[in-house]
């Protein structure tokens, strides 16, 4: 499984033609205490760069963009009950949604872990 990163601080774990999307640990550290997460509905067709989810800290609301085009095939219901998971385990348990990839070429140009690390340095 490969993990790639966007400039907008999302991670994408790619497993075949399904990608799991979350926000990075850097993003959660910048946002602060997360108090609410709104996720897309399963079955929704997302276009790349479209606002797909909302994550809210005490301070502010942020959109999470669809990093690639595709259909939402699963969402992480645990985030509704425990939004603070985003702070405690952004890279793991706090995944946001899974998308069935429509066009794999959209993955080209995303960053690998080293490039993302440089991006946020």
């Amino acid at each position: 499984m490969t993990t790639l990163y966007t400039e907008d601080h999302e991670w994408l774990a790619i497993d075949g033609d399904v990608v799991t999307v979350g926000i990075t640990d850097y993003a959660q550290s910048q946002l602060g205490d997360v108090v609410f997460v709104e996720l897309p509905k399963v079955g929704r067709a997302l276009k790349k760069a479209e606002a797909a989810a909302v994550v809210e800290s005490v301070k502010a609301a942020s959109d999470v963009y669809a990093p690639i085009t595709g259909e939402v095939v699963a969402i992480n219901d645990a985030l509704a009950a425990e939004p603070a998971l985003v702070n405690s385990d952004a890279d793991g348990k706090a995944w946001f949604f899974k998308i069935k990839i429509a066009d794999k070429s959209e993955l080209d140009g995303l960053m690998d872990a080293d490039a993302y690390k440089a991006h946020t340095a």
Binding site: E10, L31, D63
Partner: peptide, 9 residues
């Protein structure tokens, strides 16, 4: 994410 870089100093 829209606000992250704005929240950075």
């Amino acid at each position: 994410m829209s606000a992250v870089d704005a929240l950075a100093t």
